[in-house]
Structure formats: C-alpha cells, structure tokens
Design a protein around this nucleic acid. Structure first.
Lengths: 195, 195
DNA sequence: CGCGACGTTGATTTGCCTCAACGATTGTGG
DNA sequence: CCACAATCGTTGAGGCAAATCAACGTCGCG
C-alpha cells in the first residue's frame, strides 16, 4: 500500500500514533505525472506540496534568456514543491517537471494547517525535515563558493548516486550551474585519470 | 529588558502564552563576544545555538587554501550557529566571528529538546523560522545560478541594506563568492552609471 | 607617528561559457 | 521493419567575465 511508504518515512523522524498517521493519510491525494509533463508551471498559485512515491522530478526556474536553473531533484521519499509560493501565497516562478512517470501524494495548504492544529507532532516532522533540507542547502552553497566545476560534479555524483544514474547529464549540469559541454569535458578528464 | 526582544520576535510567529515564554526564557543564557573574537571555531562540538540581541557576526568556512567563504551574516533578531554540527552532533567546520561587539542569547541542545517536549508550540516557531531560512537560501542558490557578479552585488545591497552598511566590502565579496577587487570595480561602474 | 585595515587600480591569466558541428542512441510513424 | 526525427553526449575554436597578482592610496587608531 502506498500510504505505508509515507508512513514509514514519517516514523523515521517522529513517533506518531496510528491515529495521527491515519489523520495525516486522510489529507493525502494521489497524483500522477507522466514523463515530460508538468506538476507545476509559473504563474500558478500553489495550493499543494508533494511527496514523491515513485519517479523523479525537477524543480527549476526558467530565466528571461530561456536558461534553465535546476533548484531541486526529487525522487522517492522526497518532498517537492515551490515552497515560497506555497507558504507565502505568491504566484509560482518555478516549473516542476517529471523526468520519469511519477506518482505523488499531494497535501493542500489548508489541510496542512489544520493538521498542525489537530496533531502538532507533525510540526515536529516538518521542522526536522526542513532543518535537514536547510543544512543540505548550506552545503550546496558552500560547495559553489569553494569548489570549481570538476570538484562540484564529483561531489554531486558521490552525494546523489541514485540521481546521477537516472538523470541525463545536462540536467545535472544545470543543477550545478555548469554548461553541459563542460560536464562532458570533466567526464573525459576523469576517465583519463583513471586509466 | 533583553528578553523582551526575543519574546517580541517569537510572538511574530506564534501565539505563545506568558507561561510558555517564561519557560523559553529560563533556558537562555546571555553571551557577549567582542569585535574580532570568536563565538565558535572549527573542531568544536557545538552544544548551543544563538539569538543575536545586538551586534553583527559572520559564520564562515575557511578552506584548505586559507580562503574564507561566508555562509551567513547575523544581526539583531537572527539565529546563528553551525546547525549541521548542532543537530547532527558533529565537530564544527565553521568559524563564527563577531564583526561588532555583540550580545547573544544561547540555548543548549538539551534544553531545546526538553523545551520541544514541554511546550511543543516552539516546534512551530522553529519550523516557521527554518522554512523561511530555507526559502531565503533557495533564492540565494538561484541567484548564483542565474546572475553575474554585478547583479548579485546589487541584489545583496537591496535585500540587506542594514548589513551592507555595517560590514566591510570584502566580507560581502566573500559572501557572494566574488573577489574584493571585483566588488571594487563593480562599485566604480555603478557610480559612473549614476552620473 | 607608524602600523594595520580597507579600498582601489592596472596588468595578466584562466576557467568556463558560447557557438557550431557532428556521432550515437532511442523513439516513432508510415 | 525501416526511415527519420529527436534526444543526448562529445569535441573543437574562440571569447569573455572574473580571478589572481602586485602595487599603491587612505583612513583610523594604538
């Protein structure tokens, strides 16, 4: 059962009772997104955030020059969304696109707020997740400040082997702020070193 | 009274009762750090995080080449710390240094965990703060992906006028991942444009 | 005063981007 | 099942934004 996947995830972080889990589960709606289809597009008012059950998605910003800048990859057991738009009730500036056929749970803002009132333990769940995400982002920022392209690429492959294998190379380039051509050259250098 | 500053800050985010505030306040210890002194140095096991009452501090990483990379500025009403070390019980990799004589409140990990049990509303407080910080960091990441040095500098000055005025230029350079010389040239260009 | 901190300027270098062209592979419609 | 297009990766040439290196001016302070 799909709800078991999310419940198992929750129980990694908090000790929720069966009743609390059931309450949470009752707020979730299943959503499917086919490969190359969008879960979210700019200009939308975002009413939901999403937990990935299966598949793979990216959240990215498309700038005025048409360049794509990937903020996040999301695979199984990750939450994804335009959190700024979601929490601050602004129009979204992001695309969220499926890189594989994907299956998600959605929870709405209203339901989430109601959940926090009825079962405050979920404040704890999201506090812990957000803290972890915050720490991971700090590392990403530090990496861009300190390291060159090659080191950042190697770090990415090490940190996200399960994403590296599933996602085309130019997407990783966009996440790292490197051109696809540079990634290609970096890979060549790495190969030559390993001979 | 100093506790009023933090209580006012808390009440911006949650509806805490006087009793809850008093409980929180009882966990806080005042700390003073003089200009150019350190609140934290690498290798330390971090047992506290800090709320800035007055002054200004930076959290930065010093890489193996001796280059400084500023992760965060902290002024009045900001929380600062090595959150990775604090939450994951690792040795710190950061310096936290006062840029001005500063006064802070410290809360220990143990006290914070106990507080979350006794007054779960503070889970909400920190969840909201962390969510905001997470969103701000996403914007910072996007900025480095999308914009050139000049645009990032201008954005910083706009977003943090109260930091821009208080902090020497080369510190801002380090935060933005730009050399101090480049910042100087950017400033010249801006001046020339405005004549 | 003299030193350290901070900012500026110029000359040179460099890492990476951009542009362009071309294989290899996969998917797809006739 | 083949032809063709689309997707993805690779390679080379050239250019540019910003780093680096070095020197100097200025201000504030012990």
């Amino acid at each position: 059962m799909k709800k078991q996947a999310i419940n198992a995830h929750i129980l990694n972080y908090i000790q929720a009772t069966p009743e609390e889990l059931t309450l949470f589960n009752s707020k979730l709606n299943e959503v499917k997104v086919d490969k190359r289809k969008f879960l979210l597009q700019p200009g939308t008012y975002v009413k939901q955030e999403y937990f990935v059950l299966s598949g793979c998605l990216t959240a990215y910003y498309l700038d005025t020059k048409g360049h794509k800048h990937i903020l996040q990859f999301a695979i199984e057991n990750w939450w994804v969304g335009d959190f700024n738009a979601f929490y601050n009730h602004e129009a979204s500036k992001l695309h969220i696109e499926a890189l594989e056929d994907s299956c998600l749970f959605a929870i709405s803002y209203k339901d989430l707020q109601a959940l926090f009132i009825k079962a405050p333990i979920f404040e704890r769940y999201f506090r812990i997740l957000t803290t972890n995400a915050f720490i991971a982002q700090r590392k990403r920022i530090l990496s861009t400040l300190e390291k060159n392209s090659k080191a950042r690429y190697l770090e990415f492959c090490k940190n996200y082997p399960n994403i590296d294998e599933r996602v085309p190379n130019y997407q990783i380039a966009s996440y790292l702020g490197i051109s696809a051509e540079s990634i290609s050259r970096i890979r060549r250098h790495i190969k030559q070193e390993n001979i």
